[in-house]
Write a protein that binds this DNA or RNA. Structure first.
Length: 840
DNA sequence: GAGGTGGCGACCGAG
DNA sequence: TCGCCACCTC
């Protein structure tokens, strides 16, 4: 690679505008940013800084202020602009700051134009933040950075420009999971595969997995292709790709896979990008999967100025193909790489850091970093037990109200849950309390049915060949175009080789349809023609309003008397409103296919509720971590599917959660939780034990009953993954000498005895909460007990009188394993777990 | 073709 | 328990 880096001749500022502008021309894509032309990324200050940089290459002007506040390691990472650099950045060590300052540094030294920097993140949120922060250093110059974005958005950008080279047209549509599933369903039906045994969703996951690993249909190992539907997996993948091409569509995985193919098969295109990307920066490198890694490596071969920032302790996306190996392998991939470790934590207090650090040492296979802080030790991390998930929500609600009374802002409080189903309890509670909250990354706005319907209308208008969109709304609202009519359109489309809309148009002109169907279809096709014609004249949000109105879609929900209809209408209004800022319809559609988050009530003072996954990269003064129970966190499925690796990933997730907190981290667990509508006794998470004792304080929920109660709680004894300090009440002092605690201890001992005292065995059983039938079977995962739940057959029989903490007295009417159906005197019939009740 | 119902799996997670 | 989907009836 003879690419002469800018440094080789500092007097020659990068002048690529000659190829820059044609390269970035909207090429018929009205959605492409116009800033590339109107604003080549130069501002007066920038020019001045560059001039000075040229005059004095060693000590450039403007390289002062923003570098001043950096510590020596950060500074090294920022200033080593040339050659490969790996920044191992622990939580809260100023990782984003390094990345953004580095970009600002490159810009102000005049080493590259903004358009010559490739900066990749995983989430839109991260990209947005990075853009903001760079903007605050370098000003509007940041607008000239078209290559700052997520892997996916940059992939789209590349593909749009060279679509024809990979067999697509530049207006291709991007399918989301929903479209993907529907398409796969059609394929499964065509192959006469039983969808019960081989669900489309499973196939979608399988294909995604292959794509994450950078495998095209030809590259899938034969054995793997055969695992789905008696050897049909490989063929289905091939068929699926063919269908996508025919539809001029790609799925998320293709955005990378096809980009890789584009670069591999077209050396001239690759060379162009090599020339273009003088500097490459990658955020969260530990989360890259194989496809992303291959993509990056191809591009980085050019300038070799690649800077990856990551933290192996925060790798939490193994399930979607992330390879921690990528980060571990960096030095051999890029010989001579500079490795910078950032270990000075600026975020959290000593106790929080201590607890998190001690937890993460339980993982093997880390690069190993020791975070330290020079700040105060602050408040200890609290661990609080609650009777059930409702009490947990109540307790957290009370603590938040207390904080609020002390003058703390709500937006500095976050509740981080493991799984989104845990959110509802908090939402319910906060609604009752009148406490403002916002759910981040919750039920996605653009995935709601009404929004997807509306978008489907717009997609058909924007690209008439979007068959999937057309299919979605032919008969929404119901207009009498059912399966039979659709099949006719399909048949004609296939024989004539036309998109569905065109096929429909021809059928309308013919005599083949029933008169009624023909009339309806004619109207529909006519509507689309009219709307398409209006698209040129009207702003997209006005068009959307007209479409929703004239299609009868709005009316459909107005007539709907169900509870959620009003909310859906609101969502539609919100959708129309959110379209305004865009240049045109196509620009909007492009945006939403990639950006699935609608930041609703941003800016308002509200408690943040989100999953641990989406909390990565954020920080809050106070962080609540509810649901630390075996099965919930660590998540049972992660353990079942990934074994030890899954457990370690869960632990990293716990680490991420704790390290989000600046001043207060508050962990909760509930003794009882309703899962699949069944009350289950829960066992405190093993992660509680792994928090260093000196950094933790155990408190009792103000709600009263603590976490004891009539169930086998003590997690070590019964669950046997090692001794737990929770087994010994005195370790934790007075809180655990409560009657509830004592009861729990007794229950622990008795049930451990009943289960044969297999406390040090090597079994992992599927949690009874996920199916009692196989609770008796064991499973060895690398010789370590990953999880064990379920229990001995019930000590109760039909007709026994029992007492339940929550439901009171009742009679056992049925027994199934350790699950009882009890007719309670007051609460009615409930299914409960045996250990949850006691003899009266 | 529309509307109702019963059975079953889900509740892990980004773009 | 909840929501979805397949299947059934009118």
């Amino acid at each position: 690679m003879s690419a002469s880096g800018p440094l080789s001749d500092p007097r020659k500022p990068p002048r690529d505008d000659a190829f820059d502008i044609p390269f970035d021309l909207p090429d018929g894509m009205p959605g492409a940013p116009s800033t590339d032309i109107s604003n080549p990324g130069i501002r007066p200050g920038g020019i001045a800084a560059r001039a000075q940089a040229l005059a004095n290459p060693g000590r450039p002007a403007g390289a002062g202020a923003y570098i001043e506040g950096l510590n020596p390691e950060q500074r090294a990472a920022v200033e080593a602009t040339e050659g490969p650099v790996l920044v191992l950045a622990g939580a809260g060590t100023g990782k984003t700051r390094v990345l953004t300052t580095r970009i600002a540094h490159i810009l102000s030294l005049g080493l590259a134009w903004p358009s010559q920097i490739l900066a990749v993140t995983f989430t839109n949120k991260a990209a947005r933040e990075m853009k903001e922060r760079i903007g605050s250093i370098v000003g509007p110059e940041v607008e000239g950075m078209p290559w700052l974005g997520t892997f996916h958005s940059i992939g789209v950008r590349m593909l749009r420009r060279h679509a024809e080279l990979v067999g697509l047209k530049s207006g291709f549509t991007i399918l989301d999971t929903d479209d993907q599933i529907r398409l796969l369903k059609q394929l499964l039906q065509a192959e006469q595969i039983d969808e019960k045994r081989w669900p489309a969703r499973l196939l979608a996951n399988t294909i995604d997995g292959w794509k994450n690993r950078g495998l095209s249909p030809e590259q899938v190992p034969a054995g793997e292709g055969a695992t789905f539907a008696h050897g049909k997996g490989g063929k289905l993948y091939r068929d699926y790709q063919a269908r996508l091409k025919a539809l001029n569509a790609v799925d998320f995985g293709d955005l990378l896979l096809e980009s890789i193919r584009l670069l591999r098969e077209n050396p001239d295109v690759l060379a162009e990008y090599h020339k273009r990307f003088r500097y490459i920066l990658v955020d969260e490198y530990q989360d890259t999967n194989v496809a992303q890694y291959l993509w990056l490596r191809l591009l980085a071969q050019g300038s070799r100025n690649v800077c990856c920032v990551g933290d192996d302790d925060q790798s939490i996306y193994g399930w979607r193909g992330a390879e921690v190996d990528n980060i571990l392998r960096f030095e051999s991939d890029f010989p001579g790489a500079l490795v910078v470790r950032l270990e000075r934590n600026y975020r959290s207090t000593g106790h929080i850091l201590g607890a998190a650090a001690h937890l993460i040492t339980h993982n093997e296979g880390r690069l190993g970093k020791t975070l330290f802080s020079e700040g105060e030790s602050g408040e200890k991390v609290t661990v609080t037990g609650a009777w059930d998930s409702q009490e947990e929500a109540r307790a957290i609600g009370e603590e938040i109200e207390a904080l609020q009374r002390e003058g703390h802002g709500l937006s500095q409080v976050a509740i981080l849950v493991r799984a989104s189903f845990q959110m509802r309890e908090f939402e319910d509670r906060f609604v009752t309390l009148g406490l403002n909250y916002r759910v981040i990354g919750g039920p996605r706005f653009y995935e709601r049915a009404e929004i997807r319907d509306a978008l489907a209308y717009l997609r058909v208008i924007a690209s008439p060949s979007d068959d999937l969109a057309f299919e979605r709304i032919v008969n929404v609202p119901k207009r009498g175009l059912g399966d039979a009519a659709l099949r006719q359109i399909h048949d004609h489309a296939r024989t004539a080789g036309l998109p569905l809309v065109e096929a429909a148009r021809e059928l309308v002109a013919s005599e083949e349809l029933k008169p009624k169907v023909r009339l309806t279809l004619r109207d529909l096709v006519g509507n689309f023609d009219r709307w398409r014609e209006q698209m040129a004249r009207l702003p997209q949000h006005e068009l959307a309003e007209i479409v929703l109105d004239e299609s009868g879609y709005t009316e459909m929900w107005q007539k709907d008397r169900s509870a959620e209809a009003a909310g859906r209408l609101d969502n539609l209004k919100e959708l129309v409103r959110s379209m305004e800022p865009f240049e045109n319809l196509i620009g909007f559609l492009e945006h939403i296919s990639l950006v699935m988050d609608a930041e609703g009530a941003a800016g308002q003072d509200a408690v943040n509720i989100m999953t641990l996954h989406s909390s990565k990269g954020l920080e809050f003064d106070t962080v609540f971590l509810p649901g630390w129970e075996e099965g919930v966190f660590p998540n049972q499925r992660a353990l079942d599917e990934q074994g030890r690796a899954g457990l370690e990933e869960e632990r990293r997730l716990a680490y991420v959660g704790i390290t989000r907190a600046r001043r207060r981290a508050k962990v909760f667990f509930a003794s009882n939780r309703r899962i699949h509508g069944l009350w289950q006794s829960a066992v405190p998470s093993r992660f509680l034990d792994e928090l260093s004792e000196r950094d933790v304080e155990v408190t009792e929920s103000r709600g009263g009953s603590g976490w004891g109660g009539g169930q086998g709680g003590g997690y070590a004894g019964r669950y046997g993954y090692g001794p737990s300090r929770f087994d010994e009440a005195q370790t934790f002092g007075s809180s655990y000498s409560t009657p509830g605690w004592q009861r729990a201890q007794n229950a622990t001992r008795s049930s451990a005895a009943a289960s044969g005292g297999k406390s040090s065995g090597g079994f992992a059983e599927r949690g009874s909460r996920y199916g009692a039938s196989d609770a008796a079977r064991g499973r060895v995962i690398e010789g370590e007990l990953i999880a064990k739940s379920g229990g001995p057959p019930s000590r109760f029989g039909r007709g026994d009188r029992v007492f339940h903490q929550k439901f009171g007295y009742g009679d056992v009417v049925a027994v199934e394993g350790n699950k009882l159906t009890v007719q309670f005197d007051k609460a009615g019939e409930k299914k409960v777990v045996d250990s949850f009740v006691q003899a009266p």
